Simulated assay, not measured.
Amino acid sequence: MVLTNDFVFIHFPKNAGSFVTECLQKVYDGRSSKKADKKWGDYITYLINRENTQYAKKYISKSLGYTGEKIKSQHQGCDEIPIQHQEKPILSTIRNPFDRYVSQYKFGWWKKNPVLPPEKRHELFPNFPDLDFGQYLDLVLNYRLENTRQKNNISADMGIYSLQFIQLFCKNYMDVLSSINDIHQLDNNHFYTATFLHQEQLRDELYDYLQKQGWPESNISFIRNAQKVNTSRDDFSYRRYYSQEQVDLIKEKEALIFRLFPDYSF
């Protein structure tokens, strides 16, 4: 979560949130005025009122996978926006689900944080962590999701992208997740109002959003040529990873994302 003087940015994992965070840090860096270059007076004001521009502070947060446990994270959801910032607009990012699954596969967080105990992992995935993409989907869509659902009393079937979206943007998400039986029970009224920057046009959309906040071109022009952050692969042809059966599986599991963002498809 990034708190600025103008809005709250919700950092959605593997949706180019680190890129946005770095850009916001450069734009807001100690400036209390959009009309002039940074001055000592602006910087002193910023230090006194620093809570309004926390770029990547890790707050104590609820963790979906472990009911009741508190962790430090930069991926807090809308339910955890501090009270003094709750009236501000909400900004976040979104990404094609098919591309995001490939990105997570290549990023490899799941290799260092296995969801199965060693004995079960060896039985089901004897070649772990050298899994192909199909085995990875089996791991995260069956065993990882099942662990999370059991720990949180979740009965509705969904993919990990939809589950994280609900965690970040659904009102009273823990209560909602434990009360619905079908993902189609959720509609727009269950979610906070937010603006989503599309990862595929991120530079242009972030530039336009900040321009609407009143930032002059001289402060935000760098965004159009800024380098990617935490990129996990150099091959962006996600389609080659999928069989038709896997395409149908993702469409079914991530029906919520495709319904809320109908521009996305395979």
Rank of each mutant, 00 (worst) to 15 (best):
L145V: 04
E69D: 12
C78P: 03
P82E: 09
H85Y: 15
F128Q: 01
Q164I: 11
Y105N: 02
Q104K: 06
K106E: 14
P114W: 06
Y101I: 01
D132H: 07
D138E: 14
L131I: 06
F107H: 14
Y66W: 09
N96R: 07
E51K: 15
E80S: 10
K62T: 11
T148N: 02
L91P: 10
R149V: 03
R121E: 12
T53M: 11
V102W: 08
F165S: 02
I166G: 05
Y59E: 13
K58V: 12
K111P: 04
I90D: 00
F125A: 01
K62W: 06
Y59D: 15
N113Y: 13
V115T: 13
N96M: 07
W109P: 02
S155N: 10
I90M: 04
G108Q: 07
G108H: 00
I83C: 05
L139E: 05
L139K: 03
K120F: 03
L64P: 01
V115Q: 07
V140M: 06
P89D: 10
G65D: 07
P117N: 14
F133K: 03
G77Q: 00
K70M: 11
C78G: 08
S63M: 12
G108T: 05
I94H: 05
L145R: 06
A56H: 12
F98G: 03
L137R: 04
T148C: 02
W109D: 14
E51P: 00
W110I: 07
H122R: 14
